[in-house]
Design a protein around this nucleic acid. Structure first.
Lengths: 234, 234
DNA sequence: ACCTGAACACCGTTCAAGT
DNA sequence: ACCTGAACACCGTTCAAGT
C-alpha cells in the first residue's frame, strides 16, 4: 500500500562530497531544463540529491549562486566569442557583432545571466574592459580617433545587447503564451485599417520583431556611419 | 497588553464596493511604490483593504491583472507619445524616438509592463499597428518606398526599445546593488591595463552604458542611413 | 568543518463556504 | 452575485542541531 511517496529519505551525504563547483555545475544542468527564471533552491537540492540547506553553506544567498554562475558563464563566453581581427575593420566589427549575437541567441542561459541579470564581478568587468580595449586599439589602428572608436564600439555593443535582450524577452513571453486565451495569438494585421503595414508584411517583413533582418539593418547603419567618418569622400 | 497586532480584522466589504477599475487603480498606486516586480496579490489586498481572494473574483490570475494594467498603461502611453508630424521627416522621426524614450524612462512601470513583460491584447496590438501605419504613411509621403519606410521605422522602434530596456535593467540591478559587497561597486578602469578606455572615459564617456549620448549616436546612424537612401547625392 | 530537517514568512491560487 | 478565511503547494532563508 504505497503511502503517497514518502519524502524519499535521502542517505546522509559524507563530509567532503559537496563542493561549490558541483553546485554550480548542477545549477547549469537544471537551468538548461527550467531556465534561469525557473531555477529554485529546493529544486536544485533535489537535483543534486542534497538537503536544500546544504547549498546555503557554500552560497549564503541564491544571489551569490547566480553571481557565481554568471562568472563562469562569462569566462566561457569570452572564450567562445573573442575579438578576431579580419582584413578590414568593417569585417572585424561585423563578425564580432554577429558572433556575439549568435552566442547569446544560442544560449539563453548566458543571455539571462549576463544581459538581463547582469551583475558582473569586478574580475569579470576587468576582463570585459580588456576586450573593449583591444577592439578600440584595432579601430584606432584603422584610423579612428580614440573617441570615435569608443563611440563606434559602444554603438555596436548596445545594438547587439539591445537586439538580443528584446528577442529573449519576446521568446520568454511566447513560451508563457501557451495558456493565454485572447493574448498574443498572433498580431492581427488587417489590410483595411493598415494597408501599408499589410503590404510590407506580405513580403516577409516582421513588424517590430527583433529578427535577423532588423539586426543587420541596424548594424549597417552603424558601420556606414563609421565608414563615412573615416572616409568622407565615399 | 498588545497581542502582536492581531490580524487587523477588516470589516466585511459591502456587495458592490469592489470593481475591476479600482483594483487596477490600486495596483498602479502600489506598483508606484514597490515596482511591478514587487507587486504581490496579498499586498494589493491589504492596500485595497480587501481580502486577497476577493481580487480573484475579478482577475482569475495575477497575469490577468497585469494584462489589464498593460492595456491601461498602453492607452495612456499612446496618448502621451503620439506620432507628431514636424516640417521634415527627419525631425518627425527624431522627435518621435526621443519622446517615446523619455516617456518610458520617466515611467518605469510603463517600461516594465509594455517593454519587458510585453503581453499585448489584440486590441492594443491593433492600436499599435495603426500608429505604425501613420508613421509609415508619413515616410512614404516624404519619398520612401513602403519597404524602406517599414525598415526605417522598425529600426528606430527597435533602437528605442533596446535602449530603454537595457537602461531599465541596468537601473533595476543597481537598486539591488545596495547590499552587494564585492559586486559592481563601480567599474574599475585601470589606465595601466586599459589606457585607451581610460582616455575616452576621462572625457565623460560611459563605457557600455545605455545613456543619452549613445542613444543619440545610434539614432543619428539610422537617420543618416535613411537620408542617403532618399538623397544619394548628400 | 560540513551536512541536515524543522520552521518561518512569504507567494499564487483553490475551495467551500458565508451574505 | 459578490466577498471571505482556511488551506495548499511552493519559495528563500534561518536556526539549532547532528556527525
Amino acid at each position: 500500500m504505497p503511502k503517497r511517496a514518502a519524502p524519499a529519505k535521502r542517505q546522509r551525504r559524507e563530509r567532503g562530497s559537496l563542493n561549490p563547483e558541483d553546485i554550480i555545475q548542477g545549477a547549469f544542468e537544471l537551468a538548461e531544463v527550467v531556465s534561469i527564471d525557473g531555477l529554485s533552491m529546493p529544486m536544485l537540492g533535489r537535483h543534486l540529491d542534497v538537503g536544500v540547506t546544504s547549498i546555503y553553506w557554500y552560497f549564503r544567498k541564491k544571489d551569490d549562486l547566480l553571481n557565481a554562475m554568471t562568472d563562469r558563464a562569462l569566462s566561457r563566453y569570452a572564450f567562445a566569442a573573442p575579438f578576431v581581427e579580419a582584413d578590414h575593420w568593417r569585417e572585424t566589427l561585423r563578425n564580432h557583432a554577429r558572433t556575439m549575437r549568435e552566442t547569446f541567441l544560442g544560449n539563453p542561459i548566458l543571455a539571462d545571466l549576463i544581459l538581463i541579470r547582469s551583475a558582473l564581478s569586478r574580475d569579470a568587468a576587468r576582463q570585459g574592459a580588456q576586450g573593449i580595449e583591444r577592439a578600440i586599439a584595432t579601430l584606432v589602428k584603422a584610423g579612428f580617433t580614440v573617441d570615435a572608436a569608443f563611440d563606434l564600439y559602444s554603438a555596436i555593443n548596445l545594438h547587439v545587447r539591445g537586439s538580443v535582450v528584446l528577442q529573449r524577452l519576446y521568446d520568454k513571453n511566447k513560451e508563457i503564451e501557451a495558456g493565454a486565451s485572447a493574448y498574443y495569438d498572433d498580431i492581427t494585421i488587417e489590410p483595411e485599417t493598415t494597408p501599408l503595414l499589410a503590404e510590407a508584411m506580405a513580403k516577409g517583413r516582421r513588424s517590430g520583431a527583433p529578427d535577423d533582418h532588423n539586426f543587420e539593418y541596424g548594424l549597417d547603419c552603424i558601420l556606414d556611419h563609421a565608414g563615412r567618418l573615416l572616409d568622407p569622400g565615399n
